[in-house]
Design a protein around this nucleic acid. Sequence first.
DNA 1: TCTTGACTTAGACAATGTCTAATGTAGGGT
DNA 2: ACCCTACATTAGACATTGTCTAAGTCAAGA
Lengths: 138, 138
Amino acid sequence: MSDLLERLRGRGWRLTAQRRVVAEVLDGDHVHYTADEVHARAADRLPEISRATVYNTLGELVSLGEVIEVSTDGRAKRYDPNAHHAHQHLVCARCGTIRDVHPTGDPLADLPAGERFGFAVSDVEVTYRGLCPDCAAA
Amino acid sequence: MSDLLERLRGRGWRLTAQRRVVAEVLDGDHVHYTADEVHARAADRLPEISRATVYNTLGELVSLGEVIEVSTDGRAKRYDPNAHHAHQHLVCARCGTIRDVHPTGDPLADLPAGERFGFAVSDVEVTYRGLCPDCAAA
DNA sequence: TCTTGACTTAGACAATGTCTAATGTAGGGT
DNA sequence: ACCCTACATTAGACATTGTCTAAGTCAAGA
């Protein structure tokens, strides 16, 4: 983890208690928390931390490429600290839980059982992202 | 279009002016509107239509499988009337516009130029959806 | 230690979506 | 053709998630 903090300091980050705590929360588990969940866990260690700071810090981590922002349902975005290894996502259609998976071969084929984590997978979707001509021009 | 209305009536839908207008809006263009955009366009024809009704109707169309709900960014969900043909989505990272694409071959390969609609594609992601063990049990 | 510009805070605001209680109406029954 | 009644609609309050601002605070270099 101090790897992460070191990298951030190297990029000119001012190292505050708040940022340290947010980074630690993300580093702790392999789960993908929402911003509010990150805030709640950060507040366990640093009660005065504000929502705005958590949002700001998460946004910065995303900009720096240290964390990936995932919005799979219309609900809250989730933050994936596993930004340095290529992977795809397995999402619960009801509760929104996200797991990282590493499918091999044809992505549209079924997930291998070993990557399925007990989920009943019902759908695979592929999304291409980029800039549309108008936004690229602007 | 009256196909759609017929199908819906066949499923016991009460055919109201509001539902008719929402269905017509979705049928009109090939764009993927947000709920608010659908509401604005519906209100052009039926000024008193309420937001709640638009949300309800869209939700019903999704449940019936006539329309697909797409939430690719953290912003508003968009509604895709093209539910009866398998396809994937090309999303603008800035403005959220969505186009349907029909990639062939390996989905992780680049989109063929003919399917790119002038977008500068920078990322491909695959999402598997289903129920996690806890939600499947509940 | 001092200074300064970057950081944090509380809370207002914004965007999107959900719910409720009162009212209206489509379509079947007569 | 006209009533019923269950289902649909409405306005607006409320909920959730996220953004912004103005004032105060602090990390880190001189």
